[in-house]
């Protein structure tokens, strides 16, 4: 009974964004794996509530905070940082709205990725250099404005031309699935609700949306859809 109740406390702590309950539940927790599972279940439930409009973004932010605190406690038991898949994330050049990016970064961390957050107003070259340096599998780009879309496209172009094995995920108010596709991104995340699934899906796919992206003379993006090779660094 004891072991069944402990994870439940952690699950509830995340779902209800209750730091006190989290501390109390950890007092009795003795199985790190079960604890991690419970925390994740709690965040799954919180995402579901957010997706069903039963919880607001503000409430979800507090759930993510509790989840992060919980993960910090379990840090010693989880995979080493170097064993986790790396996601480089940031808001593209020309934009400083980072709320959506912060939520997505928090969710991805909670689901076991090592997230390298470059912050706001990040240039295409900074993104690509960080991806290369960190050996990232995914580049996640965000913008809430239409102004930086050209820079987002340039970032994707640069990344695809230089690091074709890296998957690019985009999200933000001026985007939708089709726009993301036309820009050459591998995936589109409408909100934090579905981002773990979107990421998993693009990582499982051996295809990249494009290995080469061009900007034509009329400034329209032309995407050559090809099946790229796997990451040279991967077996």
């Amino acid at each position: 009974m004891k072991t069944n109740q402990k994870p439940n406390g952690l699950e509830q702590a995340v779902l209800n964004a209750d730091m006190n309950l989290l501390e109390a539940a950890f007092e009795q927790a003795d199985d790190p794996q079960a604890s991690l599972l419970s925390l994740t279940k709690g965040l799954d439930a919180a995402r579901e509530k957010l997706g069903d409009y039963r919880a607001s973004v503000a409430e979800f932010l507090l759930c993510v905070d509790v989840m992060r605190t919980g993960l910090e406690r379990l840090k010693a038991f989880g995979p080493a940082p170097e064993d986790r898949q790396v996601v480089v994330i940031g808001v593209v050049q020309g934009d400083v709205h980072d709320l959506g990016k912060n939520i997505v970064a928090g969710v991805l961390e909670a689901y076991g990725y090592r997230v390298v957050d470059l912050g706001r107003d990040v240039s295409p070259m900074e993104f690509v250099e960080a991806v290369e340096k960190q050996g990232a599998a995914v580049l996640a780009l965000s913008t809430m404005m239409s102004t930086p879309l050209e820079d987002m496209a340039r970032t994707i172009q640069l990344c695809k031309n230089r690091l074709p094995h890296v998957k690019v995920l985009v999200g933000g108010a001026p985007l939708d699935q089709e726009v993301a596709r036309n820009m050459g991104a591998d995936g589109y995340a409408e909100s934090a609700v579905g981002v773990p699934e979107s990421l998993k899906k693009i990582l499982q796919s051996t295809k990249t949306r494009a290995s080469r992206v061009f900007v034509d003379y009329d400034k329209k993006l032309r995407v050559e859809e090809t099946e790229a090779g796997t990451n040279p660094g991967e077996p």
């Binding site: 973004v57 503000a58 409430e59 932010l61 507090l62 905070d65 980072d98 709320l99 912060n102």
Partner: peptide, 11 residues
Amino acid sequence: GAEALFKDCLN
């Protein structure tokens, strides 16, 4: 900042 404000509104 929106994120901090949201949390402050709840806390």
